[in-house]
Structure formats: C-alpha cells, structure tokens
C-alpha cells in the first residue's frame, strides 16, 4: 500500500528517474573542467584564428575590438612569404624527426640493457629518469655549461685529446673531415637534437622496458632450443613485439617535439641554424611586436601538424599486434 501511494505521489510531482539523476550529477561534476577547457582552450583557439586575420601590433592591444574588425590575409602572406620560411620549415622537420628517432633508439637500448636483473638495477633505472623529470631550465643550463667554449668540461676533455674547442650551441657549422672530403656539419642543430635524445629517452625507456618485461619467457626458451643466438632472438623475437609501442611512441614524441618551444629557445634562442617554428612565433610576438603575424604562424604550425598526423594515421600507424 505504502509503495503504491508513493508511486502516485511521485507521478503528481514529477521526480527524476535514477538515470536522469545520474546524468545531472555527471554534468555537475564535469562542469568545471569542461568550462575551463572551453574558456581557455577552445575559445582562445577560435580567437587565435580571428587574430591571425587582423593587423595587430603588440602596443595596440587595448584598441582591439571584435566589432570594428577588418579582415586581412596580409599576416599569412607575411609569415609564409618571409625570407627563410623554407629553411624554417626544414629545420623544424629535421628537429622533430631526429628529436623523435633519437630518444626512441636510446630508450630502446637502455630498456634492453635493463631488462634482465643485475646488481643495482633499481638505482640504474631511477637515475635514468633524472633527465626527464628535472626542470627544463636546469637541464638546459647545465648542458650549456658542460659545452661552454671557455671552461666547459667537454671542451676541456676534447682539448686534452687534441681536438679543437668549439662553441657547440652557437656555431652553425663545423668542418668534418671524412674520407678525404670536408663536410659542413650543422653543429648547433645536432647538439639541440642530441639534447632531446638525452632529455626525452627516459620516456620511451619506461614504455619499452614495461613491454620487454611482459614478453613471455617460453618464447625465448623455444627459440634457444631451436638454436637462435642472442642477436637472432633480439632481431626476430623481441623487435617484432615492439611495433605497437613504437608506433605510439613515435606519435607522441613527434607531436611533442614539433610543438616544443622551451628547449630550442633556452639552448640557442633560435640562433646558429636552430630556429624552429615555435621560436619564430615568439620572435614575431615579442621581437617584432606583431601579434597578427605570430597568430598566423601559429595557425600554420597547427595546420602542418594536422596534415602530418593525418598522413601518419593513414599510412603508418599500427594499432594491434599481428
């Protein structure tokens, strides 16, 4: 009876079903993060597109209004038509490509070394994560000290061995004598890439190590019985099992390197042939106080990244082990 009357009451004053209540609760709990993301990511993104079509100098920010806007494509002509745009693009791609490959190779090597237990492996693994967790400013500056032309320890050791002192982060080219020919090797750019290799390998190291340790041991036992040697086991058993994790790591590392600003900005300031798009955007914004051009170049950056990601997903990405 009581149940029945309650049912009547609830139909008189419409109550929410459990599902509706849960939906309301979900919206309430998600309200803050969604609002923050919409206000600080989605809207700025749209506004950035708007800014990229405006003639806007840094000092004129207060004058900016949404209503009296005049649209112009001059910013895009300016940044894409600027002298050295092709070089900028090439440097960015070289940096992103090798800044992806090198950390992966180093991470894989370290993971292979640390897969089987040895005394001190725990400490080894912890120390190997230091470059990744330390603040970027600290790692950049200690590298610049180590490679300092005047007193850097690397130059000191090199000169003991009879090599010339170099300004590793401010010298564009170094002459490399190989097999009787002289090669102009891009020194500063290589150094920036080597820095990326050092700083970001721990990330792929952890992923590769987790994957390697999950590989079934009997696979290796069976291969041993069949007479496969150490290198053969690595080549034919281990490597094929790493395809999926590699595909994911390539994707993440490429996106992050392509978008990276801090490293190049702090290491070289974009000098000596290391200028990448992100640093150029900063240069447009503050060096030349041209907000519109900076916005336009950042849109160009986003478009290039989107195109590259599309190509990658379309032709290269592997999702499942075969």
């Amino acid at each position: 009876m009581s149940l029945f009357s309650r049912g009547i009451n609830s139909s008189a004053t419409p109550r929410l079903t459990l599902a509706q209540q849960e939906e309301r609760l979900a919206y309430r709990l998600l309200a803050v993060p969604v609002t923050v993301v919409v206000l600080l990511v989605i809207l700025p993104l749209l506004w950035n597109i708007f800014l990229s079509f405006q003639e806007l100098r840094l000092i004129e920010l207060q004058k900016l209004s949404l209503w009296a806007a005049e649209f112009t494509t001059r910013n895009y002509e300016k940044v894409v038509g600027a002298r050295g745009f092709i070089t900028l693009l090439r440097t960015t791609l070289i940096y992103s490509l090798f800044g992806t490959i090198l950390p992966l190779l180093l991470g894989l090597t370290a993971a292979v070394l640390a897969r089987d237990a040895f005394p001190g492996r725990g400490v080894f693994r912890s120390i190997l994560l230091f470059p990744y967790i330390a603040p970027i400013v600290a790692t950049v500056f200690v590298w610049r000290m180590m490679f300092n032309a005047q007193f850097g320890i690397v130059n000191e050791w090199a000169s003991m061995l009879g090599y010339p002192r170099l300004s590793y982060f401010s010298q564009r080219y170094v002459d490399l004598h190989l097999f009787g020919t002289t090669l102009k090797w891009p020194l500063a750019l290589s150094m920036v890439i080597i820095f990326s290799g050092w700083r970001y390998f721990p990330f792929s190291f952890l992923f590769y190590l987790a994957r390697l340790q999950a590989l079934p041991e009997d696979l290796y036992e069976a291969a041993k019985v069949d007479g496969a040697t150490l290198t053969q086991r690595f080549w034919y058993i281990t490597l094929p099992q790493l395809r999926v994790v590699t595909a994911t790591l390539v994707l993440l590392r490429f996106i992050w390197t392509f978008n990276k600003f801090d490293d190049v900005f702090l290491l070289t300031g974009g000098a000596a042939g290391t200028e990448v798009i992100t640093v150029k955007i900063y240069d447009w914004l503050f060096g030349r106080a041209d907000v519109g051009a900076a916005a336009a170049l950042s849109i160009v950056l986003a478009i290039i990244l989107a195109v590259l990601l599309f190509i990658y997903f379309r032709y290269f990405f592997v999702e499942e082990e075969v």
Binding site: E23, L45, L301, L305
Partner: peptide, 28 residues
C-alpha cells in the same frame, strides 16, 4: 555515470592534450 555527450567529453579532453601550448599562448 551515463550521460549524453560522454564520448565528446572523453575525446575532447584527449584532443586538448595535442594542442600546442604556443598556439594558445598568443590569444591568452
């Protein structure tokens, strides 16, 4: 919890992760 727009929220957040900081830096 089940709610309309669940997939949108989940995918949207992942996508935000991929947006370059420098792109947002200028409008902000």
């Amino acid at each position: 919890l089940d709610f309309r727009g669940k997939n949108l929220v989940n995918w949207g957040l992942l996508l935000v992760y991929m947006i370059p900081a420098i792109v947002l830096a200028i409008p902000l």
